[in-house]
């Protein structure tokens, strides 16, 4: 099926995109890589009357790292980000997560910012942002503002972006050298949206104690969920088996999945426990065995 008729506008930079959003209001949608929006339009689940194409812009396509952070422009293609060495060494969780994001062809076109602004609670990039406590920079008519990831994602496909705001970039804290990362995803078929996904980053200090633990789960709630309680239980410990298992139980206690056509809430709860434990253990192995 093809989408219902819509008006097409092209923006040449982010400021023009904001102007167009202001002009058309709620009827307009930003077209970035189109890997989620276009299928939704074809299924008539989304019927924007205006599409504002930002593929001609240049001020939102960049990957920059400094001592403390990695900053990625919203129009950076996912496949570019996945293969970027600067990004991979600063935040190794990013390429690991992107490998699960659709198929390669989707990532060739799909953008970093598009996936964040789409805010699917089962998608990989929002879960990475939440796991690592990233921040999103958005621009509106009166200027820029910065939103922490946990405040950006509000509900399935709903963010704190105002109708006339556009996502410019996101900033992620650089992970300490040697941080172990792991993405655990459970999907019925290859390339399906995850029934449950868990992202973990773990760093052990020279005494073998965890001085960094970051965990988030996707697909189990209305937004990706940072698993604070599990992180707190594990931080500063040697990450022994009993501790990991207990933290995994705590993780399952802190999410609120619902039944849907893909799986039951109870299965998801159980899988959060299983995948959190697996992700932590694999992340430890990843640190110990080094990044390959």
């Amino acid at each position: 099926m093809k989408p219902p008729p819509f008006e097409y506008r092209s923006a040449h930079d982010s400021a023009e995109a904001v102007n167009l959003l202001t002009e058309y209001g709620d009827d307009a949608k930003i077209l970035a890589g189109g890997q989620s929006l276009v299928p939704l339009m074809n299924f008539r689940m989304a019927r924007p009357s205006v599409l504002i194409d930002i593929n001609q812009t240049h001020d939102m396509t960049h990957i920059r790292a400094d001592d403390g952070h990695l900053v990625v422009g919203a129009m950076t293609r996912q496949r570019v980000l996945e293969r970027d060495q600067t990004a991979g060494s600063a935040v190794p969780l990013l390429p690991a997560a992107l490998a699960h994001s659709g198929h390669t062809t989707n990532r060739n076109r799909g953008t970093f910012g598009g996936s964040l602004a789409h805010a699917d609670p089962a998608a990989e990039l929002p879960t990475v942002l939440v796991a690592l406590g990233g921040e999103l920079t958005v621009q509106g008519p009166s200027g820029k503002r910065t939103v922490p990831a946990e405040d950006f994602f509000l509900a399935p496909l709903v963010t704190s972006l105002e109708y006339n705001e556009i996502l410019l970039s996101a900033r992620l804290p650089r992970l300490p050298q040697g941080t172990g990362v792991r993405v655990e995803e459970l999907a019925r078929r290859h390339g399906d949206f995850a029934i449950v996904s868990v992202m973990a980053a773990v760093h052990l200090d020279s005494n073998g104690r965890a001085d960094l633990v970051r965990i988030a789960a996707g697909g189990v709630d209305s937004t990706p969920i940072r698993l604070h309680e599990a992180e707190a239980q594990l931080s500063g410990t040697a990450l022994d088996d009993a501790g990991i298992d207990a933290a995994a139980v705590a993780a399952a206690d802190s999410v609120h999945p619902t039944d849907d056509v893909h799986g039951s809430a109870s299965y998801r709860l159980e899988m959060v426990r299983v995948l959190v434990a697996r992700a932590i253990r694999s992340a430890i192995t990843h640190q110990k065995e080094g990044h390959r």
């Binding site: 299924f43 019925r188 078929r189």
Partner: peptide, 16 residues
């Protein structure tokens, strides 16, 4: 019929 689309009516793909 619950599965009236090919997202939840899952056909195997080459990778499976």
């Amino acid at each position: 019929v619950v599965d009236d689309n090919l997202e939840s009516y899952r056909l195997p793909i080459a990778a499976d």
